[in-house]
Nucleic acid binder design. Structure first.
Lengths: 236, 236
DNA sequence: GTGTACGAGTTTGCATGCAAACTCGTACAC
DNA sequence: GTGTACGAGTTTGCATGCAAACTCGTACAC
């Protein structure tokens, strides 16, 4: 499957925004954080290939810094699970199908719970705003893959924000919605897009009804459906 | 509340085991990982106080290494949220009530989901083993706080293992069951212990019945109950 | 007494140094 | 041809160096 990923260029487009925590750290950790971000991007966009050994001196030269900030960044990347230890040093981590299934389950658990909390804690205005993100989308005649990714992200982020739990938000961010990117978005069938729209509408309906369990179930179903689509596209 | 924590010595006793991921890294990252563990322990056991600035040179002297492995460890500790950036360098992170509530919610979401998966995926033997952990405990005449903590940990770990999702297990480990330690265990009332036992029995009953939703709900209730007990004890 | 400016001392962030561990190709034995 | 032993070259892990940024106490102005 990593072969498939390589060939279809499916890896890229992870959400590269810094988490709230990381932003907070920008204050002092100047170059080291910059290095971390750039290495993260390089891995995530596939410039550094899965299983590729990461030679500190090479990375240092590539980013025009010394080995010290590189080594510190590698610690962070290891905590993110983007990099994995070898007998000596580090290599880019390769994700198996099994791991992507596991991540989908974790995301279903966390984001489902976020939807549950949102059903109780969101203001009416917030729920209206969530619905309007979907309305805007449904009202458009032409949907580019980039727009679909972006709109989807706003939809999910708005629900997560309404859950009022920054730690939960951060953990959802960490587990990553890395598999819905432009490339994938461009390969979904009309039917799959219809299902996606249906899922979103179910979630909104539950939120409007302030139905916590319903919102949670709908969100879980949605996330596991997205995983199924992902599986079909990358072909396992 | 951090004042309360200081006075009651409530901070200690976080689970100091390395996660599966960390163990894997032991191979190459020798001293640096050792340093990380020792700093983690020092923070978690309260040797390094919340908001205490962490002076690299002092830590280096204290652990008898140079500043380099200290700095690398600080990156890991930051990823764990045990350490927080200051204008210059780092300080031990202080948890607010609000953050502990947030963590409890995340743990309820993740560990509830683990119970759900366990209800479907556990073998009959695994469920029997989970039940027997509780049977052993209920059959004892005298329960020391240390035993209660240890038995509780085995109970939860067995359920998590039966969920067959290592990423989920790792995330549960990360969010930490830091608030149920010996000190807290020694301060619970007979009534609270009764409730705890009841919660565990409910979870077991749902697992035996292979009732996924029931197991999830019971686990969530249990975790949120534990948070309530924690709140009472540390007194907010 | 209150406020501010200076400077010695501290501490960081990054670069560099260096020995030990590992890798890998060559050559030699059989 | 297959296997192994050696050693040059590479790369790491940790230590140390050093300039820049910050801290904090003292002294001086008002």
């Amino acid at each position: 499957m990593d072969q498939v990923m390589k060939n279809t260029g499916v890896l890229p487009d992870v959400d590269l925004r810094l988490s709230a925590l990381q932003k907070n750290e920008r204050r002092n950790q100047g170059a080291a954080l910059e290095v971390y971000e750039r290495l993260r991007r390089a891995i995530v966009e596939g410039e550094l290939r899965p299983n590729e050994p990461l030679i500190e001196a090479d990375l240092a030269k590539m980013l025009n810094v010394s080995r010290t900030p590189i080594r510190e960044s590698l610690q962070r990347l290891a905590a993110d699970q983007l990099v994995t230890p070898r007998k000596r040093g580090w290599a880019v981590r390769e994700y198996s199908v099994e791991e992507i299934r596991e991540r989908s389950e974790v995301r279903a658990a966390l984001e489902g719970y976020a939807a549950r909390l949102a059903a109780t804690r969101a203001t009416d205005d917030e729920i209206a705003a969530i619905a309007s993100i979907q309305d805007e989308r449904d009202g458009m005649t032409e949907l580019t893959p980039a727009y679909r990714v972006e709109s989807n992200r706003r939809f999910h982020d708005a629900i997560i924000a309404a859950a009022r739990n920054t730690r939960l938000a951060d953990d959802i961010f960490r587990v990553g919605q890395f598999y819905f990117n432009r490339h994938i978005a461009g390969l979904t069938t009309a039917e799959e897009q219809k299902l996606n729209q249906h899922d979103h509408r179910e979630i909104i309906a539950a939120l409007v009804a302030r139905d916590a369990r319903g919102a949670e179930d709908a969100m879980r179903t949605h996330i596991l459906n997205a995983f199924t689509v992902f599986q079909r596209i990358v072909g396992f």
